[in-house]
Amino acid sequence: MSVSPGKGLLSIGEVASRTGLAVSAIRYYDDEGLVTARRTAGGRRMFIRSDIRRLSFILIAQQMGFSLEEIRAQLRQLPLERTPNKRDWEKISRGFRAQLDARIGMLERLRDRLDGCIGCGCLSLETCKLYNPDDRARETGTGPRLVVQKSVIG
């Protein structure tokens, strides 16, 4: 579908200026189907205003460690035929909330236990004898069980 410049559409340069993203990044996200540019007769990419929010969401989600596939799955829930509204954005925020809560929990456990026993099985610290006597965490798997899992011994 060919569109005319104007008509409330923004050029890729304008979108880059508003989002802080490089033009090449915006082209990449368009090529990946995370946003959908409209094309002028000359092939220039034009974007609707709500694409600024989509791109900003992508940027934030990537900085939080979400993969493009995870981001794509969330963005698929947004309507393409109209500008997403507050309810649409609330829907995808619920999709990320559980994942963010789990990451926050793991970061808190890491912060609280990094200088003590993390359940890795080394038992080299005196605190390991209190938190993980006889390496009981080993029964639940390998690695830093007291950080990775919410509760493994108790």
Score class of each variant (00 low, 15 high):
residue 100 L to Q: 10
residue 124 S to K: 07
residue 75 L to R: 10
residue 96 F to A: 06
residue 55 L to V: 01
residue 84 P to D: 15
residue 23 V to M: 06
residue 112 D to E: 12
residue 88 D to G: 01
residue 11 S to C: 11
residue 45 R to D: 05
residue 139 E to V: 09
residue 44 R to N: 13
residue 66 F to A: 02
residue 153 I to R: 05
residue 136 R to F: 05
residue 41 A to L: 11
residue 119 G to E: 00
residue 61 A to Y: 02
residue 58 I to F: 06
residue 145 R to H: 07
residue 120 C to F: 15
residue 109 R to V: 08
residue 4 S to K: 10
residue 111 R to L: 14
residue 36 T to D: 09
residue 115 D to T: 13
residue 40 T to P: 13
residue 140 T to G: 05
residue 121 G to D: 15
residue 92 I to P: 03
residue 50 S to H: 10
residue 94 R to A: 09
residue 51 D to C: 00
residue 35 V to M: 04
residue 8 G to N: 04
residue 8 G to A: 06
residue 48 I to L: 11
residue 8 G to H: 07
residue 35 V to R: 00
residue 72 R to T: 03
residue 62 Q to P: 06
residue 99 Q to P: 09
residue 106 M to D: 05
residue 96 F to C: 01
residue 23 V to D: 07
residue 19 T to F: 12
residue 56 S to G: 11
residue 42 G to F: 04
residue 137 A to M: 07
residue 38 R to T: 10
residue 9 L to E: 05
residue 68 L to G: 08
residue 100 L to M: 15
residue 75 L to Y: 12
residue 15 V to S: 01
residue 27 R to S: 01
residue 79 P to Y: 00
residue 128 C to T: 10
residue 89 W to K: 00
residue 150 K to G: 05
residue 148 V to L: 12
residue 122 C to K: 12
residue 87 R to N: 08
residue 100 L to C: 12
residue 108 E to N: 13
residue 38 R to G: 11
residue 141 G to V: 09
residue 41 A to N: 13
residue 43 G to R: 14
residue 45 R to G: 05
residue 9 L to Y: 14
residue 55 L to K: 02
residue 130 L to Y: 14
residue 14 E to H: 04
residue 67 S to N: 07
residue 64 M to F: 09
residue 137 A to V: 03
residue 102 A to T: 08
residue 87 R to I: 02
residue 139 E to W: 14
residue 24 S to A: 02
residue 137 A to E: 06
residue 8 G to P: 05
residue 21 L to W: 00
residue 97 R to T: 13
residue 56 S to Y: 03
residue 54 R to G: 04
residue 64 M to L: 04
residue 147 V to D: 01
residue 100 L to T: 14
residue 83 T to S: 05
residue 42 G to D: 11
residue 81 E to Q: 12
residue 13 G to A: 02
residue 41 A to I: 09
residue 153 I to L: 14
residue 121 G to K: 12
residue 17 S to K: 13
residue 66 F to R: 01
residue 2 S to K: 12
residue 43 G to I: 11
residue 104 I to F: 07
residue 152 V to A: 01
residue 100 L to E: 11
residue 36 T to P: 03
residue 50 S to I: 02
residue 104 I to S: 06
residue 135 D to S: 09
residue 42 G to R: 14
residue 52 I to C: 09
residue 104 I to M: 08
residue 93 S to R: 03
residue 71 I to W: 07
residue 64 M to D: 06
residue 31 D to K: 14
residue 101 D to P: 11
residue 6 G to A: 03
residue 37 A to I: 08
residue 52 I to H: 02
residue 90 E to Q: 15
residue 41 A to H: 12
residue 144 P to C: 07
residue 74 Q to L: 03
residue 143 G to W: 12
residue 52 I to E: 15
residue 133 P to T: 03
residue 16 A to V: 03
residue 145 R to T: 07
residue 108 E to M: 04
residue 120 C to M: 14
residue 100 L to F: 13
residue 25 A to P: 00
residue 38 R to H: 15
residue 99 Q to T: 11
residue 32 E to R: 06
residue 133 P to N: 04
residue 68 L to Q: 12
residue 89 W to I: 01
residue 105 G to D: 10
residue 52 I to F: 08
residue 101 D to Y: 09
residue 120 C to Q: 14
residue 92 I to E: 03
residue 132 N to R: 10
residue 44 R to P: 06
residue 93 S to K: 01
residue 37 A to P: 10
residue 29 Y to S: 02
residue 90 E to G: 07
residue 46 M to F: 09
residue 138 R to M: 15
residue 121 G to L: 12
residue 101 D to L: 14
residue 79 P to E: 00
residue 14 E to L: 04
residue 48 I to S: 10
residue 36 T to Q: 13
residue 78 L to F: 04
residue 101 D to V: 10
